[in-house]
Simulated scan of single mutants.
Amino acid sequence: MTQRISRLLMKTVIRIPLIVWSLVVLYPIVWMFLGAFKSNGEIFASPWALPETFNFGNFVTAWTDYNIGSSFMNSLFVTVLGTALCLVFAIPTSYAIERIKFRSSKILFNTYLSAMMIPMVLGWIPLFFLLLKFNMLDNLWALSLVYAVTQIPFSIFILTSFMSSIPKELEEAAAIDGMSQYGILLKVVTPLLTTGIITVSIMNAVTFWNEYFMALIFLQTDGNYTLGLAMDLMNREAQYTNAWGALFAGLSIAIIPVMIIYAIFQRWIVKGMMEGALKG
């Protein structure tokens, strides 16, 4: 009985700070969602109360009048393309480092690990002039490529840890059957990396979706703005037009995809990070 009480007390002591922290984090998000359904009068008169009626007009205003719809599609484009390009680069590189032993393979892997320690801000100015030289500024394709390259070291670090746990006997059997090295990579190794690939893809996609500074530097026209830039522009305009309801609606539109992704793939993300840590 005493042990049960002590365990219950320990669980309570641990859970109370977590519950308080969860409320602190969730309350502003809930307040933002409620504000998206309010008129400006309701926001100023009763900012903490529930909306009198759930009006979707703010979402329509944000989507059309403030070009959130166009920015949403731009963010979706660079996120999907950047994530795909990163996998195209990272999976073969991870396979070469982990399975094809060659001179300086360890040096190459350590170089990628070292690149994770370098702040990305140091590369923004050289990247700007590089894109300017090749006439690739204000280009969503170029921004997607930059996003993919910046996340390659992290992706290789995660994927190599998963790849090291794949039995080499499977690859040897495929080679005996006459399968080429590329066939082994695509048909044997890659399907066994599903958990690692999903983990890397989700982490990279969230990073690309929320990225702001590189988009600010490399994009110049409103038509190419991603959600981060559009929300910043909308925030500045809301100060003079009092379009706070539309601003909250735009923020809700920006955050909903991330919440959906985490809700769907939460188990995969936790499983992937745990397995990657243990295997690494």
Results as ranks from 00 to 15, higher is better:
residue 1 M to Y: 11
residue 3 Q to I: 06
residue 8 L to P: 03
residue 10 M to G: 08
residue 10 M to W: 06
residue 11 K to W: 09
residue 15 R to F: 15
residue 17 P to T: 03
residue 18 L to M: 13
residue 18 L to F: 14
residue 19 I to M: 09
residue 21 W to K: 13
residue 21 W to Q: 14
residue 23 L to S: 10
residue 24 V to M: 15
residue 25 V to G: 07
residue 25 V to P: 06
residue 26 L to W: 04
residue 28 P to G: 03
residue 30 V to N: 03
residue 31 W to A: 02
residue 31 W to H: 03
residue 35 G to K: 02
residue 37 F to E: 07
residue 44 F to H: 00
residue 46 S to E: 01
residue 48 W to Y: 04
residue 51 P to V: 00
residue 53 T to Y: 07
residue 54 F to D: 13
residue 57 G to M: 01
residue 59 F to Q: 00
residue 59 F to P: 01
residue 60 V to H: 04
residue 62 A to Y: 00
residue 62 A to S: 05
residue 63 W to P: 14
residue 69 G to S: 14
residue 70 S to A: 12
residue 73 M to W: 10
residue 73 M to I: 09
residue 76 L to Q: 10
residue 81 L to M: 00
residue 83 T to N: 05
residue 89 F to G: 04
residue 93 T to D: 07
residue 94 S to K: 05
residue 94 S to I: 04
residue 105 S to V: 06
residue 107 I to F: 11
residue 109 F to I: 10
residue 109 F to M: 12
residue 110 N to Q: 12
residue 111 T to H: 04
residue 115 A to S: 09
residue 119 P to Y: 01
residue 119 P to G: 01
residue 137 L to I: 06
residue 140 L to P: 11
residue 145 L to I: 05
residue 161 S to I: 13
residue 162 F to I: 10
residue 171 E to H: 08
residue 174 A to I: 02
residue 175 A to N: 00
residue 176 I to H: 04
residue 177 D to C: 07
residue 178 G to R: 10
residue 179 M to Y: 01
residue 181 Q to F: 10
residue 185 L to V: 04
residue 186 L to P: 08
residue 187 K to N: 01
residue 190 T to F: 01
residue 192 L to M: 10
residue 195 T to D: 11
residue 195 T to E: 11
residue 201 S to R: 13
residue 206 V to A: 12
residue 207 T to A: 14
residue 207 T to F: 13
residue 208 F to P: 06
residue 208 F to V: 04
residue 209 W to I: 04
residue 213 F to V: 13
residue 213 F to K: 14
residue 215 A to F: 14
residue 218 F to D: 08
residue 220 Q to W: 10
residue 220 Q to E: 13
residue 220 Q to Y: 11
residue 225 Y to D: 13
residue 226 T to P: 15
residue 228 G to T: 09
residue 228 G to R: 06
residue 229 L to M: 15
residue 235 N to V: 04
residue 237 E to R: 08
residue 237 E to V: 09
residue 241 T to G: 14
residue 244 W to Y: 06
residue 251 L to A: 11
residue 253 I to M: 09
residue 255 I to S: 08
residue 259 M to S: 01
residue 259 M to V: 02
residue 261 I to V: 03
residue 262 Y to K: 05
residue 262 Y to M: 07
residue 264 I to G: 09
residue 266 Q to A: 03
residue 267 R to C: 12
residue 267 R to K: 13
residue 268 W to R: 12
residue 268 W to H: 15
residue 268 W to G: 15
residue 276 G to N: 07
residue 277 A to N: 14
residue 277 A to K: 15
residue 280 G to Q: 13
